[in-house]
């Protein structure tokens, strides 16, 4: 049997295209030339205003550029409104008059606004222009997923949970049946803003809104994401730092059970390289720590008992945090 292709070939079609025509006014230009240049600048301003309105404000990363005529320098800025990293690729379809402006540039941007690239005008050039497109993908392809990390089941330590693997176009996904209405974080990290989107629509509400589902995405320290989809109410907000085992949502009782779907994925550098691949993220099968079977990759249709140990809590901690954690643990034990 031949499965339908899971990829699309629209890798960069959703990027944005901008053209800038700049005229460098020399102080000794004759009046006719100044008038022509002025007219061009007016056109430019109109075009610039229109170009800016093309940007979709729900995009996680807004790209802008600024040309400093005095310094003869063009600077690109990225404003990442989300709380996780984004990989940004700028492709110059056309460029003239700028030093070093080659076919493309890539950069990873974290939360906030920053300058990402700067180009100086070529001293010999009398006219400049550039036309670019950009694409952005949630994540950081330079980070290596920690495949040995022990995830916690999304319930309280010692509780039992039923797990199934679901058929999902995007990849591996687990469907959990919870004993109570509370979902606990399988791993710590920062909560992302799922109302924002990238050019693969990962993170954006790609599930059916008509089913009134909620989604929480957590960005982990190793560049992976944990995605929780459920019917209910999140307990966390975008930008919040959480730890493994933190309660993150209350789920509704639907058909007499509490359910949540969980996926772990990352921005795959092997896919980022290939422009023909539209889906840049790869789902993977994380290891979960269980009381009954130890550290395992979950199997379809089985029940497991959650085990959350101090070693698991310390996995994402720095040396200093671990030292402090152990010191507090010892203090608690002594007090008992």
């Amino acid at each position: 049997m031949k499965r339908s292709s899971l990829t699309n070939t629209q890798g960069y079609e959703n990027g944005y295209s901008f053209t800038r025509q700049l005229v460098y006014l020399l102080t000794h230009l004759r009046m006719k030339n100044i008038l022509i240049s002025g007219f061009t600048i007016v056109l430019l301003s109109v075009f610039q205003a229109n170009a800016q309105s093309f940007q979709d404000m729900s995009n996680a990363v807004q790209l802008s550029d600024d040309f400093d005529e005095n310094q003869g320098r063009l600077t690109f800025y990225a404003d990442n409104k989300d709380f996780c990293d984004y990989y940004l690729y700028i492709s110059f379809v056309y460029s003239e008059g700028f030093q070093g402006m080659t076919t493309g540039a890539s950069v990873v941007v974290s939360h906030g606004q920053r300058q990402i690239k700067s180009y100086k005008v070529d001293e010999k050039a009398t006219r400049y222009g550039y036309n670019y497109r950009y694409a952005m993908f949630r994540g950081n392809p330079n980070k290596k997923p920690d495949v040995e990390f022990s995830y916690s089941l999304p319930v309280v330590n010692g509780e039992t949970i039923f797990a199934e693997t679901t058929e999902n176009q995007e990849g591996y996904q687990l469907a959990f049946e919870l004993p109570t209405d509370t979902v606990y974080a399988c791993r710590g990290g920062v909560i992302c803003d799922d109302n924002l989107k990238d050019h693969t629509a990962k993170g954006y509400k790609s599930f059916s809104d008509s089913r009134h589902l909620s989604q929480i995405t957590v960005y982990h320290a190793d560049g992976t994401f944990g995605e929780y989809v459920f019917k209910g109410k999140p307990l966390v907000y975008s930008g919040q730092d959480i730890k493994i085992g933190t309660p993150i949502a209350i789920v509704d009782n639907s058909l007499e059970k509490y359910s949540v779907r969980f996926s772990a994925y990352f921005l795959d550098k092997n896919k980022v390289k290939d422009q023909n691949v539209g889906n840049k993220h790869t789902h993977f099968r994380p290891f979960f720590q269980t009381y009954d079977e130890g550290k395992v990759r979950l199997e379809n249709g089985k029940t497991y008992i959650c085990e959350l140990t101090d070693e698991m809590l310390m996995q994402d901690m720095s040396k200093g945090e671990r030292k402090k954690f152990l010191k507090n643990r010892t203090k608690e034990t002594d007090e008992k």
């Binding site: 495949v147 092997n270 896919k271 691949v277 099968r285």
Partner: peptide
């Protein structure tokens, strides 16, 4: 290439 890269990722994972 997609198939090859898929397997490459599986090996890395």
């Amino acid at each position: 290439n997609y198939g090859v890269m898929r397997v490459k990722t599986l090996i890395e994972l």
